[in-house]
């Protein structure tokens, strides 16, 4: 078989070189490309559907004072089923409608508490303070408290829960 490759255009050595690199690259590709997808697979999944979470009838929330509402959602990550708890403050004001604030501090994600006596939110981690409408009074957070998009459906209050 060697005579076949003795032509000056392509000697045996370069022929083998080409075959070797071709087969080698093919194998590397067949494993390598799937491997990359395999590694990044969890991040490729469709973004979870945004969800509207019911917070119950609007009348249940007293006027002019933030009311805490906690709920948990079950999530599946890989093989792990976990339950995440969320907390929101619902502030209903006469004539101004309703605003729902996240209880997550915009600084480092600690959970805020409503201090009724001082009419302020207090962050237990770095003592940040927000007023009733979520505006920063003092402390390190970079922005006011986050708000949820809300909607009313037959008297029921819903918030739009976005992932992330």
């Amino acid at each position: 078989m060697s005579s076949k490759y003795r032509s000056p255009a392509m000697d045996r050595r370069s022929f083998v070189k080409i075959i070797s690199s071709a087969l080698g690259s093919l194998m590397a590709a067949v494993v390598g490309l799937p491997a990359i997808q395999y590694f990044i697979s969890p991040s490729l999944g469709k973004e979870e559907e945004d969800e509207w979470i019911s917070l119950g009838p609007l009348e249940n929330y007293p006027l002019d004072t933030p009311t805490q509402f906690n709920f948990s959602l079950n999530k599946v990550n890989g093989w792990e089923k976990s339950s995440h708890s969320y907390g929101v403050f619902v502030l209903r004001e006469e004539g101004k409608g309703v605003v729902v604030y996240s209880d997550v501090c915009t600084h480092l994600s600690c959970r805020l508490n409503w201090i009724p006596e001082e009419e302020e939110y207090l962050c237990p981690c770095h003592a940040a303070r927000f007023d009733k409408h979520g505006n920063l009074i003092s402390g390190p957070p970079p922005r006011p408290m986050d708000r949820f998009e809300t909607k009313l459906d037959e008297g029921q209050l819903f918030i739009h829960l976005k992932e992330g």
């Binding site: 083998v16 070189k17 075959i19 070797s20 087969l23 080698g24 067949v30």
Partner: peptide, 15 residues
């Protein structure tokens, strides 16, 4: 290239 060539063919078959 001789030995490597054979080895590679067999390995490729196995692959």
């Amino acid at each position: 290239p001789d030995i490597i060539y054979k080895d590679l063919l067999v390995s490729f078959g196995i692959f």
